[in-house]
Amino acid sequence: MTPHRRIALLGSPGPVEDLLEDMLELAVRGLPPAYADGEFAFTRRGRRATDGSWSAAPEGRSVRYSAIVALGVATLPEERQRAALAGDTALELTGRLVARLPGVTGLGDAALICWAAAETGHPGLEAALHRLAELDDGCAGEPQIYTVEAAWALAALVAARAVGGSGPGADGRLERARARLLAGLSADRLYRHVLGERSGPLVPWYRAHVGCFADQVYPLQALARLHAATGDGEALAAADRVAAGICAAQGAQGQWWWHYDARTGGVVEGYPVYSVHQLAMAPMALLDLADAGGAAHLDEIALGLAWMAERPETPESLIDPHLALTWRKAARNDPKKLVRGLRATSTRAVPGGRLAVLDRLYPPVVVDRECRPYELGWLLYAWLFEPHARGRS
């Protein structure tokens, strides 16, 4: 069987290729148990029986995760889409999300729905762009905006532009979204959790210098795609800078660490290490960068994938083929998140001052037994996305 193009980039056939092919099949099987009434659950939470076996029960609902799954499933042929969505297609799922847009109040959620409308060729794209514009205008006077949501807004506008979507003031909005992301990186090595003022309502003062892994991946992806669409060299340089930063900080066994000091690029706190980062989000962003003409970080991608097969933190597998899911993360035995808070505070005052004793007091030996649908959605999108294949649903 010929491997998918992105999988083939990693080199000759071997364990990593086999892992990815198995995971793509697992994602298709694992999505229907979280899908009900045209919407995805927030999570499938693990439950342990008295005999030691595990099951996973759906909990809650999530528009955001539904939109991400729509993006991922849209990369599949129609019959596989219907298998993943219990008979529906990505276009039909996106249609339900577009219909809900008047009640959507989060910029990130609206951006993802708009992005999905562009990728699936949904006729409601213009309406989605109008709603995105309304919510973006509402953020204009705020002192801070979440970095992830700003990145999704740019990615959505780039995707819409590629299929002829306009929306109100399209060129100006694209430029504003671009400028917002580039400005957020101007004085730092990596991205902080918020763009805008250093202190404000969205993060406490002692974490103002911190950015999480998602805060790096999504801007990297959006800026790489902007360059691919428009030839924006400044955007490509910024994407390359962020990619070099997270790759330089990658763990020796392939861990994509969680919290960074945006000022220096150093790791504030490594754990949890998330399955979705290893299998999907890091590869997705880095492969988009390579497709756009930026640096190829294939060795780092492969090392991150290898962590899923074997890791120093725990001998327990994070992949459950029977339940068709990946368990969410390997984490510290620190339910109150004390390590995260202490390391944020210490590195705020002294960059690099991570209080090493905490590694011994709170070892990373816990497996978080849940799986959120977006994890499988990004897995499909990371490895099956093709820039020329938009609107295929």
Rank of each mutant, 00 (worst) to 15 (best):
D137E: 05
G121H: 07
L71R: 05
R96S: 11
R82I: 00
P143K: 03
Q81P: 02
Y35H: 08
A110G: 02
H130V: 15
A56Q: 13
D109T: 08
L71G: 06
L101D: 02
A127I: 14
Y65F: 15
T120L: 07
G38Y: 01
P77Y: 04
E59V: 10
R47Q: 12
L132T: 01
L125H: 03
E78P: 00
L129E: 01
G124F: 03
D37R: 06
G108H: 07
R131I: 01
V69W: 01
Q81T: 09
G46S: 14
H130A: 08
G46M: 08
G106E: 14
D37A: 10
Q81E: 08
D137L: 00
E119N: 09
P58D: 15
A99V: 15
G72Q: 03
G95H: 03
G52Y: 07
P143Q: 01
A99F: 12
E59S: 05
E92Q: 12
A34K: 11
S53E: 13
G87L: 12
A74V: 07
L125M: 07
V98S: 02
A36N: 04
A133P: 12
S53K: 13
L112P: 00
T43V: 15
C114R: 01
G87C: 14
R96H: 10
V104E: 06
I68Q: 09
R61Y: 09
L132F: 08
E39K: 06
V98K: 01
L85Q: 07
V63K: 05
S55F: 12
P77S: 09
G138F: 15
A140M: 06
D37E: 15
A140F: 10
Q81F: 07
A36P: 07
A41C: 12
A84R: 00
A67L: 15
G38I: 02
A128R: 01
E92N: 14
A133S: 11
A74Q: 13
V63I: 10
F40W: 07
A83Q: 10
G87T: 04
A84G: 04
V104P: 00
T105K: 11
C114L: 03
E39F: 02
E119A: 14
A117F: 08
L71Y: 01
G46K: 09
W54C: 14
C139Y: 15
T75V: 10
A116C: 09
L71K: 02
W115L: 12
